[in-house]
Design a protein around this nucleic acid. Structure first.
Length: 693
DNA sequence: CGACGCGCCACCTGA
DNA sequence: TGGCGCGTCG
């Protein structure tokens, strides 16, 4: 094979795609075509080098990215169906896949439940050592970091520096015991348990190594210790050449707060001395001016690897920095500018993105967009699967799959109300503790009769029988060999619990209608997957498998063709995406960089600022053609109007060198807003948008 | 037992 | 600002 550029890739891209002689690290700057490298590489492996697609795994961090990658690979293959044989998934989905097959090896039944962070919050809270919300969050966070760092409870307790940490460690110990009693795992376990399994069981590890011979990882800079360990266990074996490609950008590492460590990039070089390192520095996304600003900002961070982005696109329009009087004015202003640009320059709504640091910043912008009749979609906020009505239904599914899932039991039995209240549940809880069994088992156990009145016992038992029946139908051999069709069981369940009725009883018609619509969308979505549709594998899935899959879904992915709407997103959720016109809002000290705990040691603060700077870098580099950056002199915070200063990152963009121009004067007063908008809509004179362009 | 209402407090990011 | 936790009433 010659190393001449292939597939329309540039030199380094091509080198990265063709290199298969050993481990490979691709340092890919923003917009340098890293996804193309991964997809082309997989296509090359299958088409030109005869790799069996079933032995290739590509790992991403979001379901959306995985889905998109699979689609893109399918388009490159002569036989697009082969793409379905690939493992293209998130780290967490791969974890579920491994655990489902190897459950016994880690002491789980194969129908374990997956707890989301709300469930885990409740577990920590129920351990009863504190009621303070912040404190619980902190402990939850500590537990997550321990798990991701592969620190077990005994180690955590031993290493505690003070009583607070020791207590957190003890809570960690109880928390692990509780999950185990529920036959449940949390998100972190999905990676941690496979690691434990592979470490302790050579034969199982060997089987998975043979199954997954080549590994490709996207966003490698955001892997945590545990994920890296999983990768190492999968790619290293006696007499085996480590075969993988990791693609990442240390300048876009923005998940240290949840345990990711950029150092994993450096460690890769130590752990795999023959690692081939390839840099992608040509950017195909942005104008030169945008890249200059991005380089100027990130230049203030210490460098792990030397690299500098360049672009063949022209200089482009100057970046505009706008200082606003208030957050309200900021929102209105952006809405007006986007509206003007849309109508004057005939840009589609989808060409625009508004990016912000925290979800709470979205509200005021939403209001402004609505006022201007601008369609928008929000990503990175409350997810579809986090909506109460969806979680209600999921609780039933979880309980059907695993009757040891006490949190699901409590949620399902109390929604809709069926005459079982807290008093009954408390008795049941005591009883279950006494007999060391689940709530579900306790309800059916002999001896509980004496502790509950008949009117309390009956609905309880009826409910359990109902669940049992659904369970036996879901797992009875059916058309697919693995149970009755998920769709039928699901339909009957929905009918029986009469959830629609419950919604209309408890919410006003409008709200109920919306919620019911969500539920219908969800159940249809489930049925589609149950029939083997659209998830890439083409395999039928029973209700139990669907339930575990759903737990990992955080965004409504694959929503067939996006509507033409302005995109609103957190900076974190915007990673990997690009837009012709980007508005970066609320770029103020305290927001970006976000103000953290001022009592943190100085090196921690420095690290935090660096991560915030990378976040700013990610934001800037989302833009293809124009970039607006706004900040406010005053902002409403907790109801109070407070003074704000522009972010230090704005100064770092080298404003005086013509990269960015401050535009403080170009603000339209609210009074003129309507008039100017009308003018724009009715008589689009070339000059009308002068203030705005 | 559960619905409703008042008052307090916090607003980071996410698989 | 709004969500939610606690108290009281039906």
């Amino acid at each position: 094979m010659s190393n001449a550029p292939k597939f329309g890739l540039n030199g380094p891209q091509s080198e990265a795609a063709l290199y298969l002689d050993g481990p490979c690290l691709v340092l890919a700057g923003a917009g340098s075509g890293k996804t193309r490298v991964i997809t082309q590489k997989i296509a090359y492996m299958i088409e030109d080098r005869g790799y069996d697609p079933r032995t290739i795994a590509a790992l991403t961090f979001t379901n959306k990215a995985a889905l998109e990658m699979q689609e893109r690979i399918a388009k490159l293959l002569k036989q697009p169906k082969q793409a379905k044989q690939l493992t293209v998934s998130t780290f967490h989905s791969l974890g579920v896949k491994i655990l489902r097959q190897e459950a016994a090896g880690v002491g789980l039944k194969d129908r374990f439940s997956i707890m989301d962070s709300d469930d885990c919050y409740t577990i920590v809270s129920d351990l009863g050592l504190t009621t303070d919300k912040q404190e619980i969050r902190r402990i939850q966070n500590a537990i997550s970091l321990w798990k991701n760092g592969l620190v077990d409870p005994e180690e955590a307790i031993r290493a505690a520096q003070d009583e607070d940490q020791a207590q957190a460690g003890r809570i960690y110990r109880s928390y692990v015991a509780t999950l185990s009693a529920y036959q449940a795992v949390d998100f972190d376990d999905l990676i941690r348990l496979p690691v434990e399994l592979f470490r302790n069981n050579e034969a199982i590890r060997d089987r998975w190594q043979r199954k997954l011979r080549y590994l490709l990882m996207d966003e490698y800079q955001d892997t945590n210790t545990c994920q890296y360990e999983l990768v190492k266990l999968l790619v290293t074996g006696i007499g085996k050449k480590p075969m993988f490609t990791a693609v990442g950008d240390d300048d876009q590492a923005i998940y240290a707060w949840r345990g990711a460590s950029v150092e994993n990039i450096k460690t890769l070089q130590t752990d795999f001395p023959d690692l081939r390192v390839i840099k992608l520095e040509q950017n195909y996304r942005s104008t030169t001016r945008i890249l200059q600003a991005a380089n100027a900002v990130i230049g203030n961070n210490p460098k792990l690897f030397e690299k500098s982005l360049w672009s063949e696109h022209g200089l482009g329009e100057p970046i505009k920095v706008l200082g606003m009087q208030s957050d309200e004015q900021e929102a209105d202003q952006i809405a007006i500018m986007i509206s003007a640009d849309h109508f004057q320059r005939k840009n589609k709504w989808t060409d625009f993105a508004i990016l912000y640091r925290g979800n709470h910043q979205a509200r005021i912008i939403e209001q402004a967009l609505r006022k201007e009749r601008i369609p928008y979609t929000i990503s990175g906020g409350q997810s579809f699967f986090d909506k109460a009505e969806i979680k209600d239904i999921i609780a039933y599914l979880r309980l059907i799959a695993n009757d040891g899932d006490d949190p699901a039991f409590i949620r399902a039995i109390t929604t809709p109300k069926r005459g079982v209240g807290m008093a009954t549940l408390e008795v049941l809880g005591e009883f279950s503790k006494q007999w060391n069994c689940s709530l579900f088992e306790a309800a059916l156990k002999g001896g509980i009769e004496g502790k509950l009145a008949d009117r309390q016992l009956h609905p309880l038992r009826d409910f359990c029988h109902f669940i049992n029946e659904l369970e036996s139908r879901a797992s009875r051999p059916g058309p697919s060999g693995s149970g009755e069709h998920a769709a039928e069981v699901l339909d009957d369940m929905m009918k029986e619990i009469n959830y629609e009725h419950y919604l209309y009883e408890n919410f006003d018609d409008r709200a109920a209608q919306g919620k019911w619509q969500n539920v219908m969308e969800f159940t249809n979505w489930l049925k589609e997957r149950g029939n083997g549709g659209r998830d890439g594998t083409g395999e039928e899935k029973n209700l139990l498998e669907l339930t575990q899959m759903v737990a990992l879904m955080s965004m409504l992915e694959g929503k067939d063709e996006e509507p033409d709407a302005v995109r609103m997103s957190t900076l974190h959720a915007s990673k990997g995406l690009e837009y012709p016109h980007v508005y970066l809002v609320g770029v103020e000290e305290g927001i970006l960089p976000h103000k953290g705990d001022p009592d943190d040691p100085i090196e921690k603060i420095a690290a935090r600022i660096q991560e915030e700077r990378r976040l700013m870098y990610v934001g800037i580099t989302r833009a293809q053609r124009t970039l607006h950056i706004t900040w406010c002199k005053k902002r409403k915070r907790a109801g109070e109007l407070v003074h704000c200063d522009p972010s230090r990152f704005i100064k770092e963009m080298a404003l005086d060198e013509g990269i960015a121009v401050p535009l403080e004067s170009e603000v339209i007063s609210p009074r003129d807003r309507l008039a100017s908008l009308k003018a724009l809509l009715n008589t689009p004179k070339p000059d009308a948008g002068k203030l705005l362009s």
